[in-house]
Amino acid sequence: MAKNIQSLERAAAMLRLLAGGERRLGLSDIASSIGLAKGTAHGILRTLQAEGFVEQDAASGRYQLGAELLRLGNSYLDVHELRARALVWTDDLARSSGESVHLGVLHQKGVLIVHHVFRPDDSRQVLEVGAMQPLHSTALGKVLSAYDPVAHSEVLEVDREAFTPRTTTELVDFESLLDMTRARGWAADVEETWEGVASVAAPIHDRRRMPVGAVAVTGAVERVCPGGELRPELVAAVRDCARAVSRDLGAGRF
């Protein structure tokens, strides 16, 4: 294969990064995500801006996709498409785990619940679709913050409230939590948002390997985390489910 033009590859990587719902990223976030020096990144962004592919927000100085690009083809993943694709797999996850399942996406500095499968017992449960969860303390929020640079920049801005004594609020601790999440491929929330509740989440990627959402299993801490240890088969089941949905969205095997 012929040698590719590096600056175009880098520009494409930036556009991919900026593609999504309401995405605005600062120069340093873009540069570090792609692994470029700030100066190099800035040069490419300026060129993209001149072509109308990228726009800079005057107030914050952040970058977002330009109108020209949106005209060329608006291709972000519709959350209702995500739910339709995830339906079978999340049903199966609830059934095999015996716990409730949630599907979340980034929305206005929080996690928007776009799909909810009841815990498979006969108890009364209320559908939580449309509810918002915090980014910094929930398993879904941590996964999104770890994998999606937009979520990451947003979680740094929000007030990281201590919902319980176990909530991680210090920036350094939180960043190392995200590092761990990226390293092992999943995140947990053991009584960090709600007393008595624990959950495990894993990321969903689309065909461009972009993080488009996260799936989580949530239940009573005694069941999800007996003796203080997360059940390993639960972690495996959540990750299997996330991979299955990703495959359905066209992401390659990984």
């Binding site: 909810h116 499968v117 498979p120 559908l127």
Partner: peptide, 15 residues
Amino acid sequence: DTDALRANWRRAAEW
């Protein structure tokens, strides 16, 4: 019997 089948039925969501 059909009762055993009913016991298998699980509610995934309710509006």
